[in-house]
Design a protein around this nucleic acid. Structure first.
Lengths: 225, 225
DNA sequence: GCTATCCTTGACATAAATGTCAACTTATTG
DNA sequence: CAATAAGTTGACATTTATGTCAAGGATAGC
């Protein structure tokens, strides 16, 4: 085998770093657009502007490349969202979380799509993660929400439904952006749009759970062209 | 060409009807699990328990089969959701809509996943639909919601955000069911779960938009095993 | 029970994708 | 400035997928 170890021992040169980055970028596009099975190494190589054999030099096979991407995505996901505890003010914590999630959709739409495809297709490469870290995180946060409800700070809504509501509503603007854009008259979403989505969602969700929303009137609107 | 016309002239025999149904069922599974590019006719034929050439007898190629499926899905989508008008009571109309959408996720999870994959992957086969029927429907409903807001019946939330919120939150239980199931301890979702999701979502969304939710306390919960 | 149509399927021809290799070139470093 | 390591790439072997066809079997309507 030519490749000594593409994963654990990144050697000195910046050539390696550069090329791996280009390949990962290309792979992110391809996997986001085609899913795991539908993606092809040929296409990834083309996007990266490298001969296919060169891609195989850095990543032995398609699965290895895909797993690397998934790992990056999970890592990003874990670090991007702060820890919420029962002591926090729920309105503030949930509001900040919604906002962070919306901005994540704006900044990392492809990561979001790859993750979504993986889950839709039955999460064959993420089952372990789902059974462990993911489950624990979610159960932990559920307890926090329950605690808030017990203290009368929020309505006694089901915590899982609330969390899934926040996730789905925010990820929608990454995963389904084509749909959103098409109704806006093919103008793409900008910073202001995302702000406006965050504000509206925060209003509905906070108020819907019995908290005081930050803005009570004059909600901003999406402009249709 | 063997096949006279697989689309427009369904001939007499029930053989045709039976086999087409089996193939469509198989294709639905395959496309839901792999997306358009990732799906293979080999795999569809296996699922249908037919030799591949036989599948090609009924559907000339993969795209034709896929388009047929998309058409079925859009048709289902159009007929399944009633027309909401400005004269309706918003709480009732939106509540009923949320409930219908949740039940759609329960009943047609694969259709939902195929549609989701198509959109995530850039909707290459649905661009026309998105630019016409879809857009019109959505703009029409937006005006209804605006009218409700103008009459002071609901908070002046952005109508698109509200609709997307309802869609994403309800479809989540079809598209991301693996994720949901994994946190419940690998017990699959049943009728009661979907009822409970509908009730919780209705509470949050109606209240969040300034309407009176049907149940104000004692919301049901998802049981984790 | 004959005949026209419909259905079935193994076999073929292409095309596309995957992963490997060996020969070669470019970098790095002592 | 060697000489060792790292990187590049065309070519190969294999696998998988696609769509077509022709020959034969089953069905239906008369």
């Amino acid at each position: 085998m030519n490749n000594p170890d593409s994963q654990t021992l990144p050697r000195t040169g910046r050539i390696r770093i550069d090329n791996q980055a280009r390949i990962i970028e290309a792979a992110e596009m391809e996997f986001a657009e085609a899913g795991y099975k539908g993606a092809s190494m040929v296409s990834i190589a083309k996007r990266a502007g490298l001969p296919r054999a060169n891609v195989h030099y850095y990543f032995n096979n398609k699965l290895e490349l895909y797993n690397r991407l998934l790992l990056d995505i999970l890592q990003l996901w874990n670090t991007a969202f702060s820890q919420i505890t029962a002591e926090d003010d729920p309105a503030e914590a949930i509001g900040a979380y919604i906002r962070a999630k919306v901005m994540y959709s704006k900044t990392n739409p492809r990561a979001s799509r790859i993750f979504a495809s993986e889950i839709i297709q039955g999460a064959p490469h993420l089952s372990e993660y789902l059974e462990t870290d993911f489950r624990d995180w979610l159960r932990g946060k559920s307890r926090v929400i329950d605690a808030w409800a017990a203290q009368g700070k929020i309505d006694p809504v089901d915590p899982l439904v609330l969390i899934f509501l926040i996730w789905s509503a925010t990820q929608h603007y990454a995963d389904f952006s084509v749909q959103v854009v098409s109704v806006l008259g093919d103008r793409s979403l900008d910073e202001v749009d995302f702000e406006m989505v965050a504000t509206n969602l925060t209003h509905i969700i906070l108020k819907g759970c019995g908290m005081k929303p930050p803005t009570d009137h004059s909600l901003p609107r999406l402009a249709m062209s």
